[in-house]
């Protein structure tokens, strides 16, 4: 039973990694949001499963919170934003996609290399997935770097938080409830503030291209 469940968690982890790669390669904002929502669903599933295996009820709350926030509320907010700003079209990346993918593979290797000693210390059922979680964080970071528009950067930032969350549940059965609530609230407030910023940037420069901010530099 437990071996099967461990396999299931590994499957979910692999799915998460695939989704991160997909986000890395994705040009369209709308698809990015879909991918982000899928990532949230995967997280909800994995958290529930880990909670079921270890019979820790607080993981259920945490899963519920994830469901509300990352699957429902934030995607809804993001849809609204792109509706208002009318930025459904494609955005170009700073480096071409194949190069990014190759760099991403290197990053995954690095993440596994880094996570190896840590996952040996951990005793959880899902300890093998720590490397994947770290890889997700790094890949999202990479996504953030390679986009020039504000909205994909915001989505990548949120997906980075997903990676962190996954690392927390898989390695240590989740953070304490207080910390988790705090982070959830942070993400919520963060997305609201970023939304406001997006509107202001748009108002100022008539576009969401971040290269406009170069004008703000002090000579």
């Amino acid at each position: 039973m437990s071996a099967l469940i461990a396999q299931f968690i590994n499957l979910l982890a692999a799915l998460l990694l695939m989704l991160s790669f997909a986000m890395l390669a994705q040009r369209r904002i709308l698809t990015l949001i879909h991918l982000f929502t899928l990532q949230g669903i995967t997280l909800v599933l994995s958290t529930t499963v880990v909670g079921y295996v270890t019979s820790q009820p607080h993981l259920y709350y945490s899963a519920l919170l994830t469901l509300l926030l990352k699957v429902l509320l934030i995607p809804a907010l993001l849809y609204r934003v792109i509706d208002r700003l009318r930025v459904r079209r494609e955005v170009e990346t700073l480096i071409n996609i194949p190069t990014i993918m190759l760099l991403g593979i290197l990053l995954v290797m690095l993440a596994f290399y880094l996570a190896q000693p840590l996952s040996q210390m951990s005793s959880s059922v899902a300890r093998g997935t720590l490397g994947i979680a770290l890889a997700c964080v790094l890949l999202s970071f990479m996504t953030m770097i390679t986009r020039s528009k504000a909205l994909p950067q915001v989505i990548a930032f949120l997906s980075m938080e997903n990676g962190l969350f996954f690392a927390a549940t898989s390695a240590t059965y989740g953070m304490p409830m207080v910390v988790e609530l705090g982070i959830a609230l942070d993400v919520l407030v963060g997305i609201l503030i970023l939304g406001v910023f997006l509107f202001h940037i748009r108002e100022q420069f008539d576009s969401l291209d971040m290269s406009n901010l170069e004008q703000l530099r002090d000579e």
């Binding site: 700073l94 970071f141 770097i145 390679t146 020039s148 971040m210 901010l213 170069e214 703000l216 530099r217």
Partner: peptide
């Protein structure tokens, strides 16, 4: 300091 957000993100990365 070049004023490009991508570059700053790269630094932290």
């Amino acid at each position: 300091q070049q004023g490009r957000i991508a570059r700053y993100l790269l630094y932290s990365f």
